[in-house]
Design a binder for these strands. Sequence first.
DNA 1: ATTCAGGTGCGAG
DNA 2: CTCGCACCTGAA
Length: 298
Amino acid sequence: MVLPVRPPYDLCRTVQCGQAFGWRTDNTGVTGVFAARRVRLAQTAGGILVEGLSDERDLVRLRHYLGLDEPLEAVESELMRDRVLRRILPHTSGIALLRQNPWECLVSFIISAFNNIPKIELSLDRLTRQFGDGVAEGVWSFPEPARLAGARLKELHRCALGYRAPYVRQVARLMASGRVDLSAIGQMPFHEARHALQALPGVGEKVADCVLLFAYRRGEAFPVDVWVKRAVERWYFHGRRVTARQIQEFARSQFGPLAGYAQQHLFYYIRERGNGGTRERAPARTRARPQSGRRLPR
DNA sequence: ATTCAGGTGCGAG
DNA sequence: CTCGCACCTGAA
């Protein structure tokens, strides 16, 4: 089965740019679990080749999840008006925003706090095997809130969650008891939803923004992690240290509803380049100035 | 052995 | 309200 795509959509970049932890890539494509199936995806000239999914409804869901209908060309042409992104985009073009399951996304990013990517993947994998339902040979669904709510802390610690274990269980209990409703949060206005998410244990500004962006697809969200902070300081603030608050304000005024896309390109680029931690210059040879770039329209 | 990693919750000024 | 600090734990 093939799902049609329009350029500049890039499957590998989309699933590798850090918004989801469940996909594994190799030479031939990406594999992961979707709709309780082990699926394999590969991007070809004709579109996204899908193996492992037969139900038409699941294919529609996959299409939706992958963001295949986004007007990426228009988005990127807007982003090209920014002096920094104009240099970066040739290396990052095609990143789409996924529409992940909010619960899985929330747990994933609670676990991501002060952690590293291999261990985040390890924890999520163990969590899924320990508490998810075996839906096929070697395939587990992501555990439901009720399942994690009833877990022993000791069991959770076996997933190498460390000090995040109680956060995960507390959040699971809030969901399982109905005290918090993620779909209701998804209906709220941006700042209200953000506030509701931040009220959860283990969820601060950054994790809340990740859920808003990667699950609810709120384009205004601009998650500021250490990498994005570094990128923005280096390329938009002449290398000066600024607070996360200042970065948020900058992103909102500079990118408006496309802030989330901008974040993805900055994040992907500074990490892809490797040693983003050192004093490497701006992409290519121009140095961006905060005031000189034209603002993107709201 | 020591260090580092996609933040958050706390207490103190 | 801003600022500094501790923090589970696997991997290099």
